[in-house]
Design a protein around this nucleic acid. Sequence first.
DNA 1: TAGTTTTGTGGGAGATTGTGGGTAATCTTA
DNA 2: TAAGATTACCCACAATCTCCCACAAAACTA
Lengths: 155, 155
Amino acid sequence: MGYSDFTGQYKYSVDSKNRVNIPSRYRKLMTEEDVREVVISKGIDSNHIDVYPLPKWIALRDKITASMQLVNRVHRNFLRQFTQNAAHCTLDSQGRIMLTPALMEKAGIKSNGNVVIIGMIDFMEIWDPGELQKHEDNTPLTDSDFEKLEQLPLI
Amino acid sequence: MGYSDFTGQYKYSVDSKNRVNIPSRYRKLMTEEDVREVVISKGIDSNHIDVYPLPKWIALRDKITASMQLVNRVHRNFLRQFTQNAAHCTLDSQGRIMLTPALMEKAGIKSNGNVVIIGMIDFMEIWDPGELQKHEDNTPLTDSDFEKLEQLPLI
DNA sequence: TAGTTTTGTGGGAGATTGTGGGTAATCTTA
DNA sequence: TAAGATTACCCACAATCTCCCACAAAACTA
C-alpha cells in the first residue's frame, strides 16, 4: 500500500451529527489510490477508535481469517471483538466520516466534543483528548523500553 | 543514499509563520536526487527537532513497521510515539520548511526566534540555541562513553 | 573593484480547509 | 403504505495555509 504514510497528530471537533473530519493530507494520500471508504473499529488494546482504509482492512481481515482456528476459544473471542464493532464509512463530499454511537461510547467521545487523530502509518487512531492523555500518563516509554528497542535492528 | 553528507552548523531565524531555512548546501545535495520533501520529528533522546529527508524517513519507517506487531501493546505505544510527532514538510520555492507548533513547543523554539541546524550525515537536527548550549554543558562525552563506543564497531 | 548570482528573509493574494446547517433522498417501523 | 427517523448531499463561510513575488545582504566572478 504505497499511499500509507499517515503521521502526525491533528485536533478536530465532532459535530452534532457525529461527523469528524479526516486530515486533508490523509485524504489526498487515499484518493491518490481511489480509496473513499474506511472501516472504523474499536481500538485493539485501548479505548479509542481505529480507522482502516478499506484495502488495509481487507488485508487485516484476510490475515486474521487465514490463521484463525475457529475451535480455539481465544481466537473466536478475538474475531468477535474485531468484527462486531467494525463499521464501514464512506467519506462525505467534505471528507468527513460519521462515527457510530456505539464506538463513540466505548472511546469516550462525545457529540459536539473534540478528538485527536493520530497517524499510525497505514491506519489512524481517533482518541478523546482526555483518554489519550490518561493513556500516555499510564504507559510512558521508559529508558528500559528504549534499551530493548536498541537491541532490535530497528534504527 | 548517496547524497547524504550533511555536516556543519548553521544559524537561521524562524519567521512569524514558523518557517526555517534549510542550508543551501543541504538543499543542493537533496535536489541532486530529487528530494523535495522531509519529515520532521521529535528528537529521540532530547529536546530538539530531527529532520529526515524523505528516503531516509521511509527507510526508518519500514524498518520499524516490518518488525511491528499491532496486537502488541508495547509495539503499538512505540509506533504511536514515533509517528505522532512526525510531520511531512515540502520545501517551499525558497527552500524553507514550516515547523509545527507542537514540535516547536517541545524543542523550545519560538516564532521570530533563532535556531541552530546541525548536520548528522544523513539527517539534520534543529535546536534552540539555548537548549543546545544546555545540552552540551550537561552531557559531555566521558571516558566511559568512549569505552562504550570502542565496543561497538562504530569507528 | 564592479557587476552578477546566490542566499536568507518578509509579506500579500488566492486557494484550501475545517465546520455548520438546510434539504431531499433513503431507510425503519408500525 | 405512511409517518417518522436517519442519512447523504449540497451550499456557505471564516480562518488558515500555500504559493508567489520582492528585495537586501552576502558571496562569487571577471
